[in-house]
Every structure is written in structure tokens, then in C-alpha cells.
Design a protein around this nucleic acid. Structure first.
Lengths: 385, 385
DNA sequence: TTGTTATGTTCATATCGAGAACAAAACCTT
DNA sequence: AAGGTTTTGTTCTCGATATGAACATAACAA
């Protein structure tokens, strides 16, 4: 029973609701609109906003008049307010950005790395270079599952069950972490193609395919925080054995690895991505063999999406990475293959399959979301008064 | 923004929290315990309980003393309080029960039916026979997906997109409806083997297999209210075409249909269930061919559960129907097959596969849960004051 | 018999949001 | 240019909530 309520907490709770509304909104809104949105009186809204301005969380700027009525103010993040830092930690690069309330992202720094855990110390140093008293929380996106929230497993870096506590230590600011595929999905759900949907899915296609189930704007994590390995279900009837230890994974037929394997190349994480780009280019230029490889990839993608739609009934499915190219080049094939594996009675209302709109910034954007989620709480807001 | 909050709503909200706690509790608790549970003072608890007693929602009975301290009272449903009716509508029978706050079920009536929609009128009549002013809401469990919440599709009755409004009309009490597999899962999640879990799954195995994903005690419904057709994912590599219109469904290899098909019988909904029981009996008696059929069923079950666990990471999976027998007779085979299709790094912590404890009463119990869910709201509680 | 413990009860208090009335600042009409 | 309209901001009173402290009560234990 977390939601204990005294009449004093009521105020904090409404402050959080207001901050959440400002953060989630696509565009700034006025104080009067805020009152209507939250279902509170204008007087109460004035009081809330005043206190949040005192706490340097919100700021009021004159709104350009729109029609009749007394001029009002727009609610915007306070110029001296708290900031979240977001880190996107990738295969060989990292990016650090600052994110204000509302989601505006400012890139601060980026770098390459040598694939050893030492990179975490360098990222910590980069944070320190930009850190000031405005920094409130860090959101961190990494690839690989993070078991039970603290045991990191990145196969293509050879990191096996690395203890997160040794990488992100007590000298770090408050930090929340999740994996990139899940965060990319969260970003689409909060600020992209899946906005406002109750049930949706997102898949990131790179070397293989991973994804997340998005319910009411939240990414599902599972019982051990390792949900989302949709690529490791045997959905396409492959006879091969996957790196994960299972036979027949969907990932064996979808993604860059599947593309290059068709050309006799060993799938892997070095040159594989470039070769996949090359195959994509050749397919666009009309090369029949490259085109056939793309066809197979698209058909396998659609088949898996259809199967998953039967089980989970998403309103829409967004794709990122290679998936964006596959939609661009093979949309009808994906949809046909999806429909073929959709239960007959669902075919008149198939899930929409759309490219993500957050794009490459998905993990970073998602990291910013979980960072702000961590502090947009009654406890934190109360502590700032 | 549904959760508008005035200090007057606060009281109603706490009343609902208290009622919810009483409803969800495994055993009655005292007023003092309620105060601790909700994090409120004893004086506030006294006020809440007093008002709920006035509203004929709660009743206080002397609690047998346990050690020192002033004697207190247990909070129990009011003897003249509201009741939910629950209906379990099956292939050829139906059951009507009355369910008090807290979940105690009293069976009222049951009957057979002729598989035509006319049975709904007879169920309505049965409700009318037992209805009095205490009846607040009806929860209804049916088989088959209910698209968008109002278009019912029961293939084995030959009902295709039947409009629910024509079956459950304006002369019915307030009625909420969902399908049996989902409600059986909800029952396990609220009152059975999956109690208290954040992420879990339940599968009901009858002719085929259907299930539901349970998150924090709620069954997922999907974007069009037709989530849960896990049986129609191609998880086992079958080459057959399923009744649903798709090739290779998991359901082709798991359940009574799969059992009888192995003996050259046509799967169907008439004698199929009896034949499956017969096969089960023979397997128990040591018949090698029946045993082999059971083996195949169990292996296919495990394979699918492993695949789904990769994607959704449940803490536990409960089974009902034939699944209970499969666990009883072939537990190790199911677990081995599940492990084989579990990603290697997950095998040291596989999902627990357990028989449901609500058993045959799952759909009825789940129907009662959604019925009470529908009224344990601030609006309804306020309307009773 | 007396002390201990847990719970029930009473009362004063701070705070919250609602609602009404009024003020202010724009736009629109004539 | 003047007056009316519309929307928002501001001020004040009011009823309601949960709290916390103090006290009362009813069991058990020594």
C-alpha cells in the first residue's frame, strides 16, 4: 500500500501531477489550461505553480495572446531548475546529454571506447566535467540484459554478468539504468510513434532483433528484469542454433546477421554491420540476390510480428534500426507476411507497423525518460520545497 | 487525468483502499491492523469503518483476543451488503454464483444449454430468480475472444462475431464480461498460485491452449481486447494448418486435440474431450502409445513455455485444465523441454511451472474479480453513502 | 491486586481545494 | 473611441480531511 494520503501530501501529489503534465506535453501549455487539465480551480493552480516556481521547478513566461481574455502565462521548465543527464552507451561509442523537464535534449559530449569496463570511469569523468548543482539524476542506456537490475550481460563485448555496482559506484550521482532496446521502445511510447497507445510493441533491428512490450506508456521489465528477448522465440522455423543456446530463434532470420549469413559470411559484430549496409544498398540498386536476401528478412520479420500480434494484440508496432529500412523498402511484403500468420479473424484489423519517429536517439531519449521518472515523485518534489 | 483529488475525495479514496484491502486479503483482519496497513491513524480508521458500516459495506465482529491489549474487531463484509453475481458460461453448461466482498462464493444455480444464444435469456432468468436489492453487478465468463469488448466469437459454438448487446441487453444488471482463459488467469493471480507476483503467466489447456499475461495482478487485454492467443504462435514447428487460419500453431501440438490427433481421430469438440481423458488414463496405466502421446504433448508444452519465458520473463507460470494432469504426470519432461528452449543464461533461474490452485473454479472466480473491480471505485462507493 | 500492553475515543489544529465574488487585461462591436 | 464580452488572475470564506496528543478502556501478566 504505497499510496498513503494525508491532506498535506495531497498538495505534493498535485504538484507532481502538474510537473508530469508539463514533462509529458508535446507543447507548453498555460496556467489556465493546466487548471482544466488537472481538474482543479484556477486559484489552486496559481498556488501550485507559485510553489513550484519557488522550488525552481517551473517558470512562467508570458504567453502570446490567443483571442480574447486576460493574458496568461506559459508553464516552462525553470531556467535554473534540475537537469537529468542521459547516457547512451553503445558498442563502441557513448554519448552524454543533458535533458530538461519536458524532454529537451542538449548533447554534451561523446566519445569512442575500447570495449572494456574502464569506459565507465571515462563516462563518469565526462559527467563530472558538466556536473553542477542542477544535476539531479542520470539515466543510462546500455545494450544487453540487466538481470535483476544489477547484473549486466553484454555478449558482443564479452561482458558476462558484470556486477553493475563495480561500474557505477557510490561516487556516481543517483543513476538508473536499462537496456537500449527497451528504452528505445519507451521513447517511442512516450514521445514517438506509439504515443498515447495502451498496448504497443517496439522492435529494434540491428544484428538481431530485440524489443519491448509497451503498456500504457511503460515498458515491461519482467520478473527478473530480462523481458524483451522476443528475438529468441522460435517463430520462423529456422533449424540453426543461435548464439543464445537455443535452436530456431527468430533472430536467426531477421537482422544484419541473417542478411550476411545468406552471403556466406559469418555473422559477427565487426564488419557485419557494414556488409549489411552494403547489401541494403545493392538491393536498392536492383541487385537480385541482395533483393532476395532482403525479401527473406522482411518475410521473417512479418511472420514473427504476426505471431506476436496474435498473442499480445498491440495497436501498433514500431521498428527502429534496420527495421526502418525494411519498412521503407519492403513494407508490403512485411504486411503480407504478417497477415499470413495473423489469425484469420484478426486480418481485417492488423496491427499498424510503423517506423519509429524518435530514430537513432531512442535509447538516449528513453534514458532521459527513466531518469525523470525516477525523480518526478512526491518524495523528491517534497524534498525540494 | 482521471485522478482528480479534492480533500473530500480523499475520504472516499481511503474508503476504497480499505474495501480493496478487505476484498483482497486472504483472511479477515482487525481495525487496528487496517490502520497500520493503510498507514493511517486509529482514529481515522475508526471514522472510515464507521461510515462504511453505515453504507452497509463493512461490518465489525468481535475478534478473539490474541495476547494483551484491548479487544478489537474484525472487518468482514456487511451481512446486508452488496453482492456480485458471477456467471461461468461454458460449452454446454452454465453456473451462476453469488460472491460477497472478500471473494466468498455461493453457488446459486446451474444448467445445461443447447448452444444457441437463447441460453443468455435463461441465464438472465436465473439471475432474476435470485436477484434482490443486494445485487450490485454481474461478472460473466465466456469462452472465445470478445473483440473490442462487444463482439463475441465462439468458434466451437459456431458463434461468429455475435453482438454482445443483443445477448446482454438493457434489462440486465450492470454486467462486465471477459473470456474464461483470461479470467482463470486473473483468478490465479488474485487468489491462487500466482498471488503477489509482478509478472506471471497462466495457460488453460483444454482442446487447445490459451492464456494470459498477468502484470501486478491484472490480466492484459491488448489493444482490441483480444490478447492472449498464445496458442496461435508457431512455437513448435508444426507443419499443419490450424483452424484459426494459420500454419504451425502451438495449439496443434498441445491439448486434447493434439492428443486425439495422434490416434488418428479428427480433433473436434464432441467426443474429443472424452477420448483425451481416456488416453490420459491409459497413459497412467502404462500404455506405451498413450504415454508417447503424452510425452509429445508435454514436450511441446515445455518448448512453448520456454520460448515465451524468453520474451516475457515471468516469475511463474500456472496451468489449468489438462495442464494440471500434464504437470502431475510429466513434470520433468515439461521442465526439461522448457529449459532446452530457454536462453542459456536463463537456465539457472527458470520460471516456476505450477498447477493452478483455483482449479476448475477459475473462470467463475475471475468473473467475480472483474465484477468487484467494476464497483470498488470511488464513484460507486460515494454513491452508496 | 497492580502493572503492562494494545486498542478505542475525543479534541484541537494545520492544511487543502472548492466556490463565489471581484479585478484585470485583452479582444470585439458599434 | 467607447462600451461590452471573454478569459484569466486574485482574494476570501468555508467545509472537510487526517494528524497528533492525551486520555480511556479492556484484556493479559506478574
Amino acid at each position: 500500500m504505497p499510496q498513503t494520503m494525508t491532506s498535506a501530501d495531497l498538495r505534493v501529489r498535485n504538484q507532481v501531477r502538474l510537473l508530469r503534465a508539463v514533462h509529458d506535453a508535446a507543447a507548453p501549455f498555460t496556467r489556465a489550461e493546466a487548471a482544466r487539465l488537472l481538474g482543479i480551480g484556477r486559484n489552486t493552480a496559481a498556488a501550485l505553480v507559485g510553489e513550484l516556481e519557488q522550488a525552481r521547478l517551473l517558470h512562467e513566461v508570458p504567453a502570446e495572446s490567443s483571442g480574447r481574455g486576460r493574458p496568461t502565462t506559459l508553464l516552462v521548465p525553470h531556467p535554473e531548475g534540475p537537469l537529468a543527464f542521459a547516457v547512451d552507451f553503445r558498442e563502441d561509442t557513448w554519448t552524454l546529454a543533458s535533458v530538461a523537464l519536458g524532454g529537451a535534449i542538449t548533447e554534451l559530449e561523446s566519445g569512442e571506447h575500447d570495449r572494456t569496463p574502464a569506459v565507465f570511469a571515462r563516462i563518469r569523468a565526462a559527467i563530472a566535467r558538466h556536473e553542477d548543482e542542477r544535476l539531479a539524476v542520470v539515466g543510462f542506456a546500455t545494450s544487453g540484459p540487466i538481470r535483476d537490475g544489477h547484473r549486466l550481460h553484454i555478449s558482443h563485448l564479452g561482458w558476462d554478468e558484470v556486477e553493475l555496482g563495480t561500474l557505477i559506484g557510490a561516487d556516481w550521482p543517483t543513476t538508473v539504468i536499462d537496456n537500449d532496446a527497451r528504452l528505445a521502445g519507451l521513447a517511442e511510447s512516450r514521445r514517438g510513434a506509439l504515443r498515447g497507445m495502451g498496448t504497443a510493441m517496439h522492435f529494434h533491428i540491428d544484428f538481431d532483433i530485440g524489443g519491448t512490450l509497451l503498456l500504457a506508456g511503460d515498458a515491461q521489465r519482467g520478473g527478473h528484469n530480462i523481458a524483451g528477448e522476443f528475438g529468441h522465440m522460435p517463430l520462423t522455423g529456422s533449424g540453426l542454433t543461435c548464439m543464445c543456446g537455443v535452436r530456431g530463434c527468430w533472430s536467426l532470420d531477421v537482422g544484419a546477421n541473417a542478411l550476411v549469413r545468406r552471403f556466406g559470411e559469418q555473422p559477427g559484430y565487426g564488419t557485419g554491420r557494414e556488409l549489411a549496409r552494403e547489401i541494403l544498398r545493392r538491393a536498392e540498386d536492383g541487385d537480385p540476390e541482395a533483393g532476395a536476401a532482403l525479401d527473406e528478412n522482411a518475410a521473417a520479420l512479418g511472420r514473427g510480428l504476426g505471431a506476436l500480434a496474435n498473442a499480445l494484440d498491440p495497436e501498433a508496432i514500431s521498428l527502429s534500426g534496420l527495421g526502418v529500412d525494411l519498412i521503407r523498402l519492403r513494407r508490403s511484403l512485411i504486411e503480407a507476411s504478417c497477415a499470413e500468420f495473423l489469425m484469420a479473424f484478426r486480418r481485417d484489423e492488423p496491427p499498424r507497423i510503423v517506423p519509429g519517429t524518435v530514430g537513432d536517439a531512442g535509447p538516449l531519449t528513453g534514458a532521459a525518460e527513466i531518469a525523470w521518472d525516477a525523480i518526478l515523485t512526491p518524495e523528491w518534489v517534497k524534498s525540494r520545497q
